[in-house]
């Protein structure tokens, strides 16, 4: 992505691209919708059979895939809707509360 739109909150009228178009595609990745989450999907790599059904159904393009395999969840954007958990035929995804998840994260850091 080449278009630098940082600081756009302060842009004056003459800094906005013509007709308020964007000068690149996919700039929404800069919008971190992971903040919306109240529940978090957790991926169990043991149970995962790499069928990619979760990836196919994620409304937020937040199942990370590389070389035909799931390799994680994009928590910066995942809204925690749980569609992937329902879709998974192998019980490899489950939901936990975002608060609990954050506490766990902090413990890990410590």
């Amino acid at each position: 992505m080449s278009w630098d739109y940082s600081g756009n909150e302060k842009w004056t009228w003459d800094q906005i691209p013509l007709g308020a178009m964007t000068l690149d595609g996919g700039t929404a990745t800069g919008h971190k919708t992971g903040d919306w989450r109240v529940q978090r999907p957790i991926w169990d790599t043991e149970k995962c059979k790499q069928c990619l059904i979760c990836w196919m159904h994620c409304p937020d393009s937040s199942i990370k895939v590389a070389e035909q395999k799931m390799c994680g969840i994009d928590y910066e954007h995942c809204k925690g809707c749980g569609v992937c958990v329902v879709a998974c035929p192998f019980g490899a995804l489950s939901m936990i509360s975002e608060n609990d998840a954050r506490e766990l994260d902090e413990k890990e850091v410590q």
Partner: peptide
């Protein structure tokens, strides 16, 4: 060099 035209300028006073 993709552009998006006809954006939603609802926030931040871009309108």
């Amino acid at each position: 060099n993709p552009n998006s035209y006809g954006m939603f300028a609802n926030l931040g006073n871009f309108y």
